[in-house]
């Protein structure tokens, strides 16, 4: 029983982890249709923000929860103004531009910090005991953060005027412009928010995985698979795809080992997209966000 419970917690953490690395991309790609191949690097930049800040004596929690999203959000803002805003609606060009951006970020970070792994921050919060099993307290904290984050994004989209205007702009930007909305500004704000969420995710993952300049590569494929499997409704889509793929991955990893866990995740995604080419929310929860 204790094992079942602690295992369930572990799988829940796997799901939360997937949702965390995908949410920023869901906003930028799922909502704005910008294929951001530099998404992994936004996560990486969030990680380095935390490493640099804590090395300079900044409190770890402040660095992870405030500084990482702030810095990466600002970087996102600059990227959107200088690059992305000229490329809306040009998918292939965006793909190439963001790929170049990803290589640029990896190059810059490598030349500043070197190509080595930085893993000096230990996961805080100690351990949680469940019967004869123990779990990492920090992993529980991350599950909690992801739930809060999803709720925040939902509330922002549903109940604030910014959310309303952003949804309108994404649905029909010409009509929104006619109604007096500065769509360019809305795109800018949305992209920065997406980047900020990625930065937060990258910062939060540092104590668990450490960070190196090309760690984005590990995340990017999983993030895209999750968002595409999720379909057009970003919140319901990302959440349901994370639950499905993270659950399959967690259970198969426990039964057979990590290699087959990854294979099972990809296999589940392929089957899913064969049956539902427009993602989970292309068929279910169509009215959701």
């Amino acid at each position: 029983m204790d094992l079942l419970f602690s295992l369930a917690l572990q799988i829940l953490y796997g799901i939360a982890n997937l949702a965390l690395i995908s949410l920023g991309l869901a906003i930028v790609f799922g909502m704005m249709r910008v294929i951001n191949l530099a998404h992994g690097e936004f996560l990486m930049l969030g990680g380095y923000t935390v490493v640099v800040a804590t090395n300079n004596g900044v409190n770890l929690w402040f660095a992870m929860l405030i500084l990482a999203p702030l810095v990466v959000g600002l970087i996102g803002l600059i990227v959107e103004r200088c690059l992305i805003q000229w490329l809306y609606g040009r998918m292939i060009d965006t793909l190439l531009a963001t790929w170049g951006l990803s290589l640029l970020f990896i190059g810059i970070i490598t030349s500043i910090f070197g190509a080595s792994t930085s893993t000096v921050i230990s996961p805080p919060l100690g351990t949680v005991t469940i019967g004869e099993y123990t779990s990492s307290g920090y992993e529980l904290f991350l599950i909690f953060v992801v739930i809060i984050l999803l709720a925040l994004v939902y509330l922002t989209l549903k109940f604030t005027s910014l959310g309303l205007v952003a949804r309108a702009t994404m649905q029909n930007s010409d009509m929104s412009a006619c109604l007096g909305i500065s769509t360019s500004k809305i795109y800018m704000v949305t992209f920065s928010l997406g980047a900020a969420v990625s930065g937060l995710a990258g910062g939060l993952l540092v104590p668990i995985t450490g960070v190196l300049p090309n760690i984005g590569v590990i995340y990017i494929a999983k993030a895209f698979i999750t968002v595409i499997s999720g379909g057009s409704a970003i919140l319901a889509g990302t959440t349901s795809a994370s639950v499905l793929l993270g659950g399959v991955n967690g259970i198969m990893s426990y039964i057979t080992g990590p290699t087959f866990g990854e294979v099972a995740l990809l296999f589940a995604a392929i089957i899913l997209l064969r049956l539902m080419p427009t993602g989970i929310t292309g068929r279910f929860f169509r009215k959701s966000q």
Binding site: S6, G14, I208, I218, G250, S253, Y254, G257, P258
Partner: peptide, 20 residues
């Protein structure tokens, strides 16, 4: 005995298996 590809960073399920 369990094997891990070089890019695996999530060892959670394995740690549970070691416990059980």
């Amino acid at each position: 005995t369990e094997f891990f590809p070089l890019d695996v960073t999530n060892f959670g399920p394995t740690i549970k298996k070691i416990q059980s």
